[in-house]
Design a protein around this nucleic acid. Structure first.
Lengths: 202, 202
DNA sequence: ATATATTATTAAACAATGTTCAATAATTAA
DNA sequence: TTAATTATTGAACATTGTTTAATAATATAT
């Protein structure tokens, strides 16, 4: 497999498989994704999948990771001249709204097997580079807030992880409850951020 | 089906099915639960399941609900002469430690289909009576805290839901990360409770 | 106590699933 | 052009959830 054109075509088909799989998940949910549905849509035969992916789970893993990276990359606020508390508020809002936009990816992500979730969502063993970046930025913001006297001194890493877990809980809820009004959503998000930020003030 | 002995035997077999299913989940994980594994263990034939349950999902639903009710029923603190903030702290700790004790049920609960999670875990549409009770008690505690001036005035229902979501996020994380030390666990729990409680103080 | 109606259980079959493998077509390297 | 890789297929396998018609067991009524 040294040819470059061959390699490129290989990547194209991998992409095609992932895209078809994502389409199916979008339309009928994660639970109804099957190898044959993917290959029918591509007009290939079922066995071909295993030339490009190790297993169905492997496909799900890729979709999840891609989706998660996309969500995390949307965290950074547009303006950067913000106070630490505003920074945290806006970053998490970006995170949540971005995640809600890619709801189907996120659901696949949540509802897959425990091992996969562990590999990707774990806050300690960060496989996702975007997540490492996002968490590092959160730590940095907290440190800033401590320095200028807005936040109380604390174990920064621990605090960042706590904030992350708490927002994860809210997000999981918003994700699952599909028919919740925009207003209710905003009330929950704002109240949760109010409490968390007040909780780390000096 | 008017005979009482018949009815009782019916219940026994339903129990047996649920218990076998739970054993299998305990041993090999939710993903490897199958109708045939259940019936082999009971020395019955596969079809029999459908005399007692509507579907495999129906069995999972029952297991989840039972497990969840058990967890929630462990929330109430033993002593009741506590300040509101201590009350909240201890209740949530009970919740978390109880959930960690029944880890397998909780995982089944978390990793099942979205619809089932919605039905059971949703904070708005509470199917679980234990959950309604638990949430009502949390609201009551918050109201108490407001009355005696410990907590700031707020939308009590909204605040209760926010606290619940935040702790859910932490729990999900502790659930998934199996090899985390007891000390790390406690640090996370305590810090999260510190932040949340400080966040609702007056 | 016997006959009838209800309920419990089975065995076999179905369609769908993930996965494997030997055979074949297509493409690249020599 | 030949030899070697790589891509693709088609058929098969073992499992899965579920259904159904037939049969065994039990309860009800006469």
């Amino acid at each position: 497999m040294s040819n470059t054109r061959q390699r490129q075509r290989n990547e194209e088909i991998k992409r095609k498989i992932l895209d078809c799989a994502r389409e199916i998940i979008d339309e009928d949910g994660v639970g109804s994704l099957s190898i044959r549905k993917i290959t029918n849509r591509m007009e290939y035969s079922p066995g071909i999948i295993y030339h490009y992916f190790k297993s169905k789970q492997d496909i799900l893993d890729c979709i999840m990771l891609e989706g998660y990276e996309r969500i995390l990359s949307a965290i950074a606020p547009i303006t950067d001249d913000l106070s630490p508390d505003e920074m945290i508020r806006i970053s998490f809002k970006n995170y949540i709204f971005s995640a809600l936009t890619w709801r189907s990816e996120w659901k696949a992500f949540m509802l897959s097997s425990a091992d996969t979730i562990l590999a990707h969502t774990s806050i300690l063993e960060e496989k996702s580079s975007e997540k490492r970046r996002a968490l590092a930025e959160l730590c940095h913001t907290i440190e800033n807030g401590i320095e200028i006297g807005t936040f109380a001194t604390c174990d920064v890493e621990l605090t960042a992880q706590v904030l992350w877990s708490a927002m994860y809980g809210l997000l999981a809820r918003l994700m699952i409850e599909e028919n919740i009004t925009q207003m209710q959503q905003n009330k929950l998000i704002d109240r949760q951020l109010d409490i968390l930020i007040k909780g780390i003030l000096r």
